[in-house]
Design a protein around this nucleic acid. Sequence first.
DNA 1: TAGATTGTTAATCGATTAACAATC
DNA 2: TAGATTGTTAATCGATTAACAATC
Lengths: 251, 251
Amino acid sequence: VTGLLFILAKITIEQITRFEVPPLEPNINQAIVLRLARYLRVLRKLKSMGFIKVFSNNLGDATGVTPAVVRKDLSAVSIQGHKRGGYQIDATLHTLERVLGKDERQEVVIVGCGKIGRALMSHPEFQREGIQIVAGFDINPNVQSPDAPIPILPMSALATFVHSRHIDVVVLTVPDNAATEVFDQVVAAGIPGVLNFTSIELKFPPTAKCRSGCVIHHVNIGLEIENLFYLVRTHRSASGEPTPAAVPSER
Amino acid sequence: VTGLLFILAKITIEQITRFEVPPLEPNINQAIVLRLARYLRVLRKLKSMGFIKVFSNNLGDATGVTPAVVRKDLSAVSIQGHKRGGYQIDATLHTLERVLGKDERQEVVIVGCGKIGRALMSHPEFQREGIQIVAGFDINPNVQSPDAPIPILPMSALATFVHSRHIDVVVLTVPDNAATEVFDQVVAAGIPGVLNFTSIELKFPPTAKCRSGCVIHHVNIGLEIENLFYLVRTHRSASGEPTPAAVPSER
DNA sequence: TAGATTGTTAATCGATTAACAATC
DNA sequence: TAGATTGTTAATCGATTAACAATC
């Protein structure tokens, strides 16, 4: 019986598993892009404070990386400083915005308008970053409201909406038990970018439709909290803090 | 007699505490812990499906890593398999739960009960992972409700609450403009673990109170969405297709 | 035994860090 | 000039991958 179970397990897992799409990269990888986005925010603040130029070690201090990394990152997107004068904030800022695509519209759609989904829809911070939530989608008729400023539409309207509005990025905030099903609908609609708030490990299938250009990011809050507990606990026991038991040396 | 009892009691407690503190090897880093947590979820599913054992390549397929990594990770926490029979799901699961601290209570508090904070408070998925939200805190009297099942208390009650309940982890969901101020209060209350939902780059100060045992994780939704746009755009231009509309189907 | 899988060691890869020449 | 900062190259570090002996 055990043998059978274990053969079944193998087959099932192999069938379920989907290929991972390799994110082809020039010489700018995701880690760099994330840092660039953080430099951009610091630069905006500095500009609003009236500063003109900035040194790599300033940006490093503000973002928690070494000056050498800042210089290397900026160099990777062809941003040049002046040998003793640092980087011009204004020019750097513009180049970063262009590289990161902040000059284009960033319209996203929320799929799954439960509590978290609706909370994100009214999240004011996005506007400041140029991200615009243009619609929500849900199967539940009770939350649908086609005439609201940000309309909440039925799931059936997803495909036509994202085509007509050229939506590229979707935020997936459905319950875990609906994750795979709804994700398949999102994939079928041709969406190449998904921010996954469920704790299901979704993956883009290796179909022709999104052969290499599809990306999914995961925001797994439960996993993050778990990890925090683990780290706090281990740090604590490493420094030998909470357990009052003394070292039994003498005796 | 009392003295003897006391000594016996002390020894017993020392033995118990020493036994309960898991023998954590120093070469376990955050990446490993995150993977372990994902193995754990897969194992739970497999167990609920009635499976008995699992191979490293199964776990690898299900979590998107190579079998060698799975074996190395499990080996790092002293989980041993059988040379040809793979890993016993039940035993592996128990060990992982102990190592990751899932057998202890994981009580967290929400600081900032705006839309996102309240959405997290009623998030059903946490319960399933053993994470319990025991209270919320907010300065706004309109959202305070001390008698609700999960009470929302004034910020002034934070310090005494976390002390009396021994809270270690806080979820910070306040508006960006209040982030640093509220974070300072959280630090002052002695909290060692923070999940930061604001887009402000908060850091624990190097004070004595939490000199090495403090951790902060960042969930920067705006940054994630930005990054998605960037990746989708670059992938698309790399593969040389300007619009995603052209899908080859039979007409 | 033959085949399969673990556990671990060595090789590889990539990213970070350090160093320093160029130069303003 | 003297001092400071960039841009890039080399050194280091760590994590992943490959390989394979052990062994069930």
